[in-house]
Amino acid sequence: MNYQLNHLRELESESIFVLREVAAQFENPVLMFSGGKDSILMSYLAMKAFYPAKVPFPLLHVDTGHNFPETIEFRDNWVKKIGAKLIVGSVQEAIDKGMVVEEKGVNASRNGLQTAVLLDELEKGKFDAAMGGARRDEEKARAKERFFSHRDEFGQWDPKNQRPELWNIFNGKKHFGEHFRIFPISNWTEMDVWMYLAMEKVELPNLYFAHERDVFDRDGILLANTDYIEKKPNEKIVKKMVRCRTIGDMTCTGVWESQATTIEDIITEVSTTRVTERGGRADDKRSETSMEDRKIKGYF
């Protein structure tokens, strides 16, 4: 008898343990859902963790108003499928109300504005734990993130004063007004996520698969053509077979030339690709420490 789990089952078991720990230790948790593969995985694991009961917390989507339309369509079907409640926070509304001010210029993005809307939604919903699909392999600041990450009343991350995390004991104690960010899939890599989604035959947004789209080149990154981006005079629109490796805002998510039309093709592609998935994220390219700086302010 072999008592060794394969790596995907071991990661699954760890994430389910973390999700159940959240339900047990917090009064009002919420799961951050972006429509990307990592949050699809996380909510899929939540469905498994509480089966046959329903997922005992809502999904929260911060809609920048600049999402790919495919993302929104997928999101609405997905929440029905896993039987969860959906809350939508709108960046557009926040701009209209004057809570935040839109960035200007050619590289304008609503990425930074998400943080304010997120914190506002967390406050409105009185959520004491927000689960995110961030992974430690994504970025150097995230490599030091805990599963249970403590935030002060301003939602800030203090990288030098993190709680030690040992064995599988998670300390979710907090003072009134403070909350936690929780990262149940911390230990998964991009490859693990794809392999698991393939193994489990999980449905995915078609943006991840190669399709024909109008795109243009900006500083070596291909961006989807949309009215949300102000084009420079020299930027020419061309039709190409592309797919997304990550799904974020249309303004800052690069698309990749690809012929991968199935999840198996994607696994082959990812295993031979020599550029990180965030290599196409304009928001990470602003400076060497942009992720660390954003996280300190309360970004995921």
Partner: peptide, 8 residues
């Protein structure tokens, strides 16, 4: 089959 036989 290969990745289902990987260990952690």
């Amino acid at each position: 089959q290969e990745y289902e036989n990987m260990e952690l």
